[in-house]
Structures are given as C-alpha cells and as structure tokens.
C-alpha cells in the first residue's frame, strides 16, 4: 500500500496511483465536486454562526450600555494575539495546499504541524487567559452570573452571547484541528500529492472558515463599544 515499483525502477508514492471513485467520469470532476460540496458545507457553517451574530446585533441594539460595559471587561490583548495566531495558521494551511500540489511532502507536513500548533495555542489562550479567569470572577452567562460589579441588568445577556459565540467558535477550532490531524496522518503515509490533494484543500477551506468567523467575532466582541 505505501510504496510500489514504477517502470523507472524508483519507488512511487501512494498518491501517484490514485484513481477516482467509479461513479465519477474523471478525477477532475471528483475534485470539483468535493470542493463545491465543501463550499456548500461552509455556507451552512456561516449560517450557523448567523444565529450568534443575529443575537449579538439584536441585544446590542436593545441594550447598548450592557454590551459596552461587557466589552470593556474583555482583554483586547488576548483577542489580538488570538487573531494573529489564527491568521498565521490560515497562512500555513494555505501553504500546505500549495505544498501538496507541488509534491513537497516535507513542507506539507511541516505546515500542517504549524497549523495544529496554532490551533492548540488558540484554544490554550482562550481557556487559560479568558474563559477560566472570567468564569471564576463570576462573569458568566444568564443564571450563572455572579459578578458583583456589573452596571447594567442585561450584562448576563452579554456574557451569554460572548460564551455562546466564542464557545461554538472554539468547538469549530477543535473540529478543524481534528480534520487536519487526520490529513496529517494520511500525509505521513504519502497519500497526498499533485494527483490527490482534495482532502488537504477541503480541510484547509474549513480551517479558513474558522478564521473568517473569528475575523468578525474579534472586532464585534473586543473592539466595538
């Protein structure tokens, strides 16, 4: 499975013998379809986050002070660092696709490793410096709320939007990292190369979407008062 002899006598990688599924007319069709399918799935992901954005917009409109007060309690520093981390990971995963297309097996793996490291860093920062301190101070959503120094009675609602939004986003970071781990394992087997990089590209698309959502969550939650 891993290697086989070619006519020239050299060892060939598994991706070279890749053949498309029998119900497709060509590998090109199969690739296009996978990509279209992924884009449609990304559409559903955007609309999943639409609920969070809608709740944010509505309650910001109804309780502007509560949202301003709540936003002031977030630390822009960590939001900024996490944004940079995600942007860099987005870059490396785009590079990973390029490496697969060019058969640079080593750099393909390196780029995915960096991406996974960034994913871990993001979640680590999120929990260590944001979720855990905030939760223990009582800045919690809804009926969990236990923070004595709030000004506006709707501030628990702000925290509800904050935790739901960033929590569901963090869940997507983990899902994306899981996908990329799977890609990495298969990349180690030499499955991806110029003839077969569909999974690399679709996983990368998913990862970029996670980045896209954060690009909007960051200013909405941290910057706008």
């Amino acid at each position: 499975m891993t290697t086989m002899e070619t006519k020239t006598g050299g060892k060939s990688m598994p991706w070279e013998s890749y053949h498309h599924e029998p119900h497709w007319r060509s590998a090109s069709d199969e690739f296009d379809a996978a990509k279209l399918g992924m884009w449609l799935f990304l559409t559903t992901e955007v609309l999943l986050f639409a609920g969070i954005f809608c709740a944010y917009a509505i309650f910001r409109m109804l309780y502007p002070e509560a949202f301003a007060n709540g936003s002031a309690l977030l630390d822009v520093k960590f939001g900024f660092i996490n944004t940079v981390v995600l942007l860099v990971s987005s870059f490396t995963v785009a590079m990973a696709v390029r490496c697969a297309q060019l058969n640079q097996q080593f750099w393909l793996k390196v780029n995915i490793y960096i991406t996974l490291f960034c994913a871990a860093l993001f979640v680590f920062i999120k929990f260590t410096f944001e979720y855990i301190p905030k939760w223990s101070e009582g800045k919690r959503p809804g009926a969990f709320f236990d923070y004595p120094f709030a000004h506006h009675p709707a501030e628990p609602l702000w925290w509800a939007v904050y935790y739901c939004g960033t929590g569901i986003h963090a869940l997507h970071v983990l899902i994306g990292a899981g996908l990329l781990t799977w890609v990495l394992v298969r990349a180690h087997k030499g499955i991806y190369g110029p003839k077969n990089y569909t999974m690399v590209e679709t996983s990368a698309l998913y990862w970029h979407l996670v980045d896209l959502v954060w690009i909007f969550l960051f200013p909405l939650l941290y910057l706008i008062h």
Binding site: A94, H208, L212, I215, P219, L220
Partner: peptide
C-alpha cells in the same frame, strides 16, 4: 470602521487563501 476592516480581511482570506 471595525466592520469595514473586518470585511476587507474576510475578502482577502476568501479571495486568496480560499
């Protein structure tokens, strides 16, 4: 201002990275 910049960033990501 912040949302305009976010839209520009999102456009860059979707146009080039994606």
């Amino acid at each position: 201002g912040a949302l305009t910049i976010a839209v520009i960033k999102a456009t860059l990501v979707s146009m080039y990275f994606m």
